[in-house]
Write a protein that binds this DNA or RNA. Structure first.
Lengths: 104, 104
DNA sequence: AAAATAGTTAAGCATTTACTTAAGTATTTG
DNA sequence: CAAATACTTAAGTAAATGCTTAACTATTTT
């Protein structure tokens, strides 16, 4: 299970594919339908999702059925959760001044 | 606040910088210290983090103090949370067969 | 005012990424 | 068995990414 999960979910198309798979397992063609993109492109995205374990595949006839496996998202959840204490802290502090990203 | 937050946290160096900032606000040089990378590289990463709002900066003398602002991580948390129902569902189903990513 | 410090901005470069089209592999159907 | 279907794999490409070094800006120190 190589590949980085943060990298895997960085691409909006890949996130949309995962979102789609929440409606249930689906063959590639059906999955690809809403995207303005070639089938190979989707196939490649699925490969990447598979490599980090976010999807699994199985064959049914000439179709490949892809299924969601959200378990690797735990790593993301865990990482984000480290910042929740901070969130509260900020909430308690109330509003603060927003600084720009590049003021000379 | 342009830029994609999923993209921003996709890079391991950037995540490490954020992790570091949990210990408190810091000037660039101090932040950069543990990384085997030039100062401009860190500065560029900070720029990207700033653009998605994950850090804010302020000047103190000739230093730029960077501070963590975890609020934008809420978007990530929200997205991931959509998959928690799924997690439970899988847990209840128990173990299932792991398929490979490329079996012919 | 000159030199040092802290950092950014600019320019260039190698790699990776996200596609594309074309060709190949299974499987099923006529 | 030939044609169609559902993909994947391969090869190529343009654009984005993550660095580098060199030059610039702002502030402080001497």
């Amino acid at each position: 299970m190589r590949g980085d999960i943060f990298q895997a979910i960085a691409d909006p198309t890949r996130r949309a594919i995962l979102d789609r798979l929440r409606d249930g397992e689906q063959p590639v063609k059906q999955l690809a339908e809403p995207f303005a993109m070639s089938l190979p492109a989707i196939s490649q995205h699925l490969q990447i999702l598979c490599e980090v374990g976010l999807v699994t595949q199985r064959r049914v006839g000439r179709q490949r059925i892809y299924q969601l496996n959200p378990e690797p998202l735990q790593e993301v959840k865990n990482w984000v959760s480290h910042y929740e204490f901070w969130q509260e802290k900020l909430d308690n502090l109330g509003k603060y001044l927003e600084e720009s990203c590049s003021e000379s």
